[in-house]
């Protein structure tokens, strides 16, 4: 029974704690499961620990002097807690980091080239690029201009395209909607859904924009203060009164005093 669950989850994160600089406890026992082929959202307000959770999975924590001090992460049944970030990319985990971060002085085409895995042939890379330009026609038009001068939406598309070149099995995105107009968010999320369906890529989506995220995912986790305080299907979360009040009500600041309240809610939800 336990093994069957493992096989169904491409990613399983169990009671993970993360320390920055050996002192700052940023997440305090987070457990998240991503079923193979599904799209899962990680919701929560600023500072909740969402990005830290993604960095723990991708291994980028190390670059910020963070480390996993407890718990473990398995990817396709293998414990990856000690695997180097670059090798995790090779295994199929790709993290589209917060703030787009395209290679500004490279063209979009070169951005895609830069992400090519070792040993990918030139023809395979070109085919991959064409596929990405099919998903994002806006990028195709500007493939040879400087990436730093693309609009925010185009840069986000490029960041996602660049991640796709690495041939991910699990694509993690950190607030891809940040600062984008609603129509662009809708466009990008639509494409993510298409990628998920056509390529079978599992997706872990971090968002503050719960409204948009819950439209495309099957399940969501709500993180507050470094802990998962709620987990349920997208439908259940959308109809939850707390979520409605604090996340769907027009995006006002979240009130941290309600964290306890969530914890209580969690009990009857599960």
């Amino acid at each position: 029974m336990q093994e069957k669950v493992e096989a169904q989850n491409i990613l399983s994160m169990n009671s993970v704690e993360v320390l920055y600089d050996n002192v700052m406890l940023a997440i305090k026992g987070v457990s998240v499961q991503v079923p193979t082929g599904e799209m899962i959202a990680l919701l929560g307000s600023n500072g909740a620990g969402k990005s830290t959770t993604l960095k723990a999975i991708s291994g980028l924590l190390k670059a910020e002097r963070g480390r996993i001090s407890r718990g473990e992460i398995t990817f396709q049944g293998t414990d990856i807690t000690e695997v180097l970030a670059q090798n995790r990319v090779g295994m199929g985990i790709c993290h589209v980091i917060e703030g787009r971060r395209v290679f500004e002085h490279l063209t979009p085409d070169e951005n895609l080239t830069a992400a090519a895995p070792r040993g990918m042939s030139r023809s395979a890379l070109n085919a991959e690029k064409e596929k990405i330009y099919d998903y994002f026609p806006r990028l195709a038009e500007r493939r040879n201009s400087q990436a730093g001068y693309l609009s925010g939406g185009e840069q986000q598309m490029l960041a996602i395209g660049r991640a796709l070149v690495t041939q991910p099995k699990l694509l993690m995105l950190d607030e891809p909607s940040l600062g984008l107009a609603p129509f662009l968010v809708e466009e990008i999320f639509g494409i993510l859904q298409k990628i998920n369906q056509e390529e079978g890529v599992s997706v872990l989506l971090v968002e503050q924009n719960a409204l948009a995220a819950l439209e495309i995912v099957s399940q969501g986790y709500l993180i507050e203060n470094g802990r998962v305080v709620m987990h349920g299907t997208a439908e259940a979360l959308k109809s939850n009164s707390d979520i409605q009040e604090f996340y769907l009500g027009g995006g006002e600041e979240t009130d941290f005093h309600n964290v306890k309240h969530y914890s209580r809610r969690k009990r009857w939800l599960s």
Binding site: L60, A85, A163
Partner: peptide
């Protein structure tokens, strides 16, 4: 070249380079 482009990517952004598996 591809290696040269990866080097320029590193010059642009370490973190983003790591995120796509560039050493």
């Amino acid at each position: 070249t591809r290696t040269g482009i990866k080097l320029r990517a590193i010059a642009d952004d370490y973190m983003a380079s790591w995120s796509v598996g560039i050493s």
